[in-house]
Design a protein around this nucleic acid. Structure first.
Lengths: 201, 201
DNA sequence: TCGGGCCCATGACAAATGTCATGGTCATCG
DNA sequence: CGATGACCATGACATTTGTCATGGGCCCGA
């Protein structure tokens, strides 16, 4: 029997996925949680075999939660389920030890398979996702460029970013400009959006 | 037995919700479709009692699909399930005859209840959602302002918008400016985002 | 040690952006 | 009828934004 912890902030979806997994004779959903801290607490208490995490959650990032789980409970395998799979996020997830990575557009029945693979210690990444991540390649942005893009994504104005990072306004514009060139975007907002979509922020 | 058609572009989630509804003895999921046209075809062929639609779908808008269903198959009741419930969208959905409106954060077990309510011809709207929609009130934007915001949301530049709407560039900037004032946003992008979040686009 | 890349900063300049004052049409209401 | 106000439209103006050229300091690898 594979004991599973399910984490998703959307109650209805969480319950639905639990129902789906409950159909499998060898899988037992032992807990459902809605956020990172609660999930950590439940994991400590129950020591599940596999944790199935939704990536999009308010508050704690799904990857950060996976990292915390890996650190505290190395014997618990992790599977991440996500809506829009951003290549950079996949990369980060794998680097913190996540074993399974499945988009919500995958076949319904595949989730149980991935859980079994993870339980056996085998990696499974959606093939389409993996090739996309390979195609995109490494992030070409410098640390400073990532800084200004992150601030820009939150909607901050140039002077505010400059103050926050202790830079001059011109310098901030420069980083934004070079980031825009690398992402071939016409505006800072577009650049920030693309960088986010690629999972680089 | 309530015969249900399930429409959601995310395969895994669709299967999970189907599993959830299948637990109910009086509900039978007779078909699952991934997009608007396929859903319409299935509905024509099977004449389900209730259609459960996800709002966020590529291509056809969930509300548009609900409207088409209501026109072609008035005896089929419609329930909409959504991630982020935008007030204006709720308004539009109700005006085209949607009976149920449930956010994905609702209790898992509530979906079956809403389906039963809809099947009986009764309306059910998530209470929190309804009050929010009331609080927000009517959209204060003029038709032209909505036009430019819509175009702006897609990322179009001012000259392009001007050509598309047969206006001068200055006029387009004007509409954007007044919309920004009404939504108290500092930039056109912020204004467009807020208008979208309120369901006005 | 000698590039080369990254980081920081500046000034100048063209283009895009947001604001304002203004005027036109049209329906409503006193 | 005349006044009012909403909507539509334009052009002028100052500010912001993105680009470019330039230069100095720093650290790492060849």
């Amino acid at each position: 029997m594979i004991r599973v912890l399910l984490v998703d902030d959307e109650h209805l979806i969480r319950g639905a996925v639990a129902a789906l997994l409950a159909l499998e004779p060898d899988i037992d959903v032992v807990a459902q949680e809605a956020d990172g801290p609660a999930a950590l607490a439940a994991a400590r208490a129950l020591r599940p075999d596999v944790a199935v995490l939704d990536l999009e959650m308010p508050g704690m990032d799904g990857v950060a939660l996976a990292e915390a789980l890996a650190k505290e409970l190395p014997e618990t395998r992790t599977v991440i389920v996500t809506r829009h799979a951003r290549p950079g996020v996949l990369r980060r997830a794998l680097s913190v030890g996540v074993l399974g990575f499945v988009p919500k557009t995958a076949e319904a029945q595949s989730l149980a398979d991935v859980v079994r693979q993870a339980h056996a210690g085998r990696r499974y990444v959606d093939p389409g996702l993996a090739t996309e991540a390979l195609l995109v390649g490494e992030c070409p942005l410098t640390p400073r460029e990532l800084d200004v893009l992150r601030a820009s994504l939150a909607g901050a104005a140039v002077p505010a970013i400059a103050r926050e990072l202790h830079l001059s306004a011109g310098t901030v514009r420069n980083y934004l400009s070079s980031a825009m060139a690398k992402l071939d975007a016409g505006t800072r907002h577009e650049a920030a959006r693309r960088a986010w979509e690629l999972g680089w922020l």
